[in-house]
Design a protein around this nucleic acid. Structure first.
Lengths: 210, 210
DNA sequence: GATGTTAAATTAACGATGTTAATTTACAGA
DNA sequence: TCTGTAAATTAACATCGTTAATTTAACATC
């Protein structure tokens, strides 16, 4: 009766091989720079074999994205965070920026590529809102603590709005860097300076003066 | 001898027809959603005819982008701006956000699609830095006035860095909206609130307290 | 008016893409 | 040994960006 189990195990193995090969290619060449045939070549399968495991290229890509979101959450979880919520917000911002710069193609796929954005399935609904596996929830959780400690001005008491603004701020720096950093039109200041200036400005603008 | 002129005129006309058709298609379906054959069909030419006018798909796209940048600059130029530089910065931010929301696909092509980013030609170099036709220069010009008026804190005296930070802030709001607004993962606050919160926060964070 | 020149446009084709359908291979159970 | 089933392959289709060769059409020159 162990045959079914072995088959299932093998299936998962080749599925993972597909995912690993696809990841490395996507990271280096972006979504449109990678073909199903290239992915298949790398694991010495035929291109159509992939369709045994994924509906189409989009589904393969989507699965990788989900894994990457989990990875981002893991990065937050793995880094020791300060006790002071404000300090922790700075750390979160810096960690997020590091992630974007270290994995620009992941980042592009995750946050800069418009998605169809369908309903979330049951596994999604399990993850959503859990700070340990949902990076946005982790941010919001810290914002709630900071608001609870009375750190923010009275206009900024909505944790959801504050989280979305903080997210948008660091996202603006990263995504502009990714999309435009070789653009000769603007004389870009160094990335670290831009990141620091953004974090300083947006946080100070929201916090009560001290 | 008027034959050369008429030929040139006709050439410009069909070139414009190509550009118009390509724009409408690109706006509605994005870069990869449009093929040269579709563009050609729409103006009842063969696909290869386009190559008589543009080197390749990238060049066609690039020309459209340049036109859109000019349009953005014209939007700034057309709107009457307040005398107070700080007030004007708010208006610039709001105008930029309106542009992004009104022309999301233009915006996507201009600011969210990584470009090869080659050298700038002589026409580019003519435009760059002129506030009347270069939107970034217009922003920087206003920032310089605000800094000159002593409105910014001592950490924010670099007009280039301040401009890039302000730009990244509003860009973060818009691009997140475009890429993620149908994402069920986050319970988005209304766009206007997010835009206002960002503008308030980042500006207050840079200005001297009052 | 016939001829040659030139630009503009077309047709045909190449290699590559995502994907589907039909077919083969491998192997477990009877 | 035969059968059924899952996994993988081959062949094919339509479409893509792009190039090369060819035709069309309008002009200039004789």
């Amino acid at each position: 009766m162990g045959v079914k189990e072995r088959r299932e195990r093998e299936r998962v193995e080749t599925r993972d091989k597909i995912l690993d090969a696809a990841r490395e290619l996507f990271i280096n060449k972006g979504y449109d720079g990678v073909s199903m045939r290239q992915v298949a070549d790398r694991i010495e399968y035929s291109a159509t074999a992939i369709y045994e495991y994924f509906d189409d290229k989009d589904a393969l890509f989507h699965e990788l994205c989900q894994q990457d979101f989990a990875r981002l959450a893991a990065v937050f979880q793995g880094r020791s965070m300060a006790a002071d919520p404000i300090e922790r917000l700075k750390q979160i911002g810096q960690t997020y920026i590091d992630f974007g710069l270290n994995y620009p193609n992941h980042y592009k796929l995750m946050f800069m590529t418009p998605h169809p954005g369908g309903e979330l399935d049951e596994r999604d609904r399990e993850i959503k809102g859990n700070p340990e596996v949902d990076a946005y929830a982790f941010l919001k959780h810290t914002v709630e603590q900071a608001i609870g400690a009375g750190a923010f001005r009275e206009e900024f008491q909505d944790a959801e709005l504050v989280s979305q603004t903080l997210w948008a701020a660091v996202h603006g720096v990263i995504s502009l860097e990714i999309a435009k950093h070789c653009d000769q039109w603007v004389e870009w200041r160094p990335m670290e300076k831009r990141a620091q200036a953004m974090l300083d400005a947006v946080l100070r603008g929201m916090l009560k003066e001290n």
